[in-house]
Amino acid sequence: MDMLETDVPNAGRANKLTSPVRDWNPGSYRLRDAWFPLAHSESVRKRPVKRLVHSQPYYLVRDAQGKALATEFHPERFAEQRRLASEFTGGTGEYPVTEIYGYVWCWYGDPARADLSLIPDIPYLPRKGGLPGYMRSTTRFDSCSELSLENLLDLTHADYLHTYLTGDEECDSDTVTVEYTSETVTMIRDQINKKTPDFMKKMGVKSERLDFRGVIHVYVRSSVAHAFGRFTPGYSVPLFHPCVPESQFQNRLNVTINSWDAPWLFKHMMPLQGYTVSPQDNYVTRPQNARYLEPTDRRDMHSRFDGAGIRYRFLMQQLAERQSQGDYSYLPDADIGRDLTELFRTIRVE
């Protein structure tokens, strides 16, 4: 059978997009009204640090009581520049901000619509934060967040770019399942009886073959993502993977990997892999970015492994279209804060 461009495998839903994906211009969609984890809590101190969401500046700082603040202008120039405050701070110069799961989250959109129930559930991170520093890292991708998320949503790329860590494509079966709401895309990849990756062998996995289940859960509006992998036999790799869209050409990953149930060595070594995996991804997404800057009549070709990516494109365009008409609301099916323990087949870490 031929693989049609609009075929989207998924569980229990209609198997066709309601309309074809139009020209895809990643980097051009600036979706509003969402929380963004702009920094690890430990990165925000008394000296301001600057972060960006779609080029909008956020100065993060702590007040004398240790409370995180986010302002539109550098605190030293806040008084004189406050009169220039934009709609993103409702003219006050101060963004809605909260701190949970070890991150400082800021609202990008109309401050009046900032709602804490729109913060995603992260069952594998303690709500109060405080995880050790070796579990955290910050990396940068030289591409817009959309391309980084497409990269994540099609895990078959790992067979080629991250072979050492996740193993090659050879396995008895390779199944991709896609689920979605109006705000999220979930991709579940099940590989049965694949060769044990070299990294896992070094971490003490003795079996020559193993099963891999990777769950990618993406919040389209905020570019926040979970990547929850499990090697059986082996360990879990719960990765919080927010791609903060700083500009059309760059996104920032404030990553936390909490393999809480793994042995000491794995728990310490796994987060370090980000320093090799990120450059490997950047190797392709960096040149990719320039090739999506201009509209083109040449459509991308897809395989059935791209179902999640196509759905992501479609949802992004749908949201952009709604927002261009002034509709920033969340539809009833969105359920951004829903409990994800069942999806990840994990316990809640406190």
């Binding site: 190797y283 392709v284 040149p287 990719q288 090739r291 999506y292 991308d300 791209d306």
Partner: peptide, 11 residues
């Protein structure tokens, strides 16, 4: 240019 995701084939 890979027709799939436009990545340079030379990589």
């Amino acid at each position: 240019r890979c027709p799939h995701r436009r990545v340079p084939l030379s990589l």
